[in-house]
């Protein structure tokens, strides 16, 4: 099934119904008649999207500038959602399985509190990728988020498990309050990365200014990184051989917490 945006919403459009699980077995007419929220007003999905075909093999395609469309793929549990264009906030929030691929950029809160599946953003992403909502302590609890471009602040806030990889730079407070899991940043980390982290790994292939509550341990070649970087390369993220085979500084922290987290910084010879 393919949905193409024909009318740009004037205010954010919330489309909680837009995932392959919810649309399975529905006709074009039934899908067009589903309720969405345009701001605080109820409208029909068909008021904004042209709907074609049926959901086949759990595959769904979206097309258009969806940067004002929120909650695409909410709670998705299986299937594939392919999006040509950019998307708004809360993409793949609370997702438990399946795969979402976005050809453009994504807004804030990509994969917030997800626990399975994979989200791939070919462009940039906003703030709070893989994070917990305000007031909650647990962010992403499983699954993978791959961002080819940059991401903004508080990526992986409260992250509990899973893998977030960023091809470019991240903003401030990357991995803040992280409980566990892995964040790979192939560009530059923002300020105060790992603040309040308990366990888990933050890696950067560039130098970073860390908080004084992080302690240098050693410079070595962590074997597990090779596995993760090969895995990401297989998924299509460009990984340089030097980053797979090179040395990394290991810093442990945050000592205001359990001090069992680590920041790994690539050492460029």
């Amino acid at each position: 099934m393919k949905l193409t945006l024909h009318t740009q919403p004037e205010v954010p459009l919330e489309v909680e119904v837009l995932n392959s699980t919810q649309l399975a077995d529905k006709t074009v007419e039934e899908v067009a008649a589903l309720t969405v929220f345009h701001g605080n007003r109820e409208q029909l999905l068909g008021d904004f999207f042209t709907v074609e075909g049926k959901v086949k093999d759990n595959q769904l395609e979206l097309e258009g500038d969806l940067s004002r469309v929120k909650l695409i793929g909410l709670g998705m549990s299986e299937g594939t959602l392919k999006i040509t264009g950019s998307v708004g906030a809360h993409l793949g929030a609370e997702m438990t399985g399946g795969e979402i691929v976005v050809s453009g950029d994504a807004g804030d809160w990509v994969g917030r509190e997800m626990s399975g599946g994979r989200i791939t953003i070919k462009g940039n992403a906003g703030h709070m990728v893989g994070s917990a909502v305000r007031g909650a302590s647990m962010g992403i609890q499983g699954g993978e988020i791959i961002i080819y471009g940059n991401a903004k602040n508080e990526l992986g806030n409260g992250m509990r498990r899973g893998l977030i990889a960023v091809g470019g730079n991240t903003g401030d407070f990357t991995g803040v309050n992280m409980k566990a899991g892995t964040i790979i940043v192939l560009g530059q980390l923002g300020q105060r990365s790992g603040a309040g982290m308990v366990r888990g790994t933050i890696l950067s292939t560039n130098h970073a200014q860390l908080l004084p509550t992080f302690t240098y341990n050693t410079t070595y070649k962590p074997t597990f990184l090779k596995n993760i970087l090969f895995y990401l390369r297989k998924l299509g993220l460009p990984i340089e051989d030097a980053h797979i085979n090179g040395d990394y500084q290991r810093w442990s922290g945050d000592s205001i917490e359990l001090n069992k987290g680590e920041v790994l910084l690539f050492v460029d010879d």
Binding site: G181, R199, Y220, K221, P222, N227, I228, Y231
Partner: peptide, 19 residues
């Protein structure tokens, strides 16, 4: 420390030479 990679769980055990 453990690392999940897809459905695979790996354990990193610190040793005198590294892990």
């Amino acid at each position: 420390a453990s690392k999940m990679l897809g459905n695979q769980r790996l354990w990193r055990i610190p040793v005198m030479e590294g892990e």
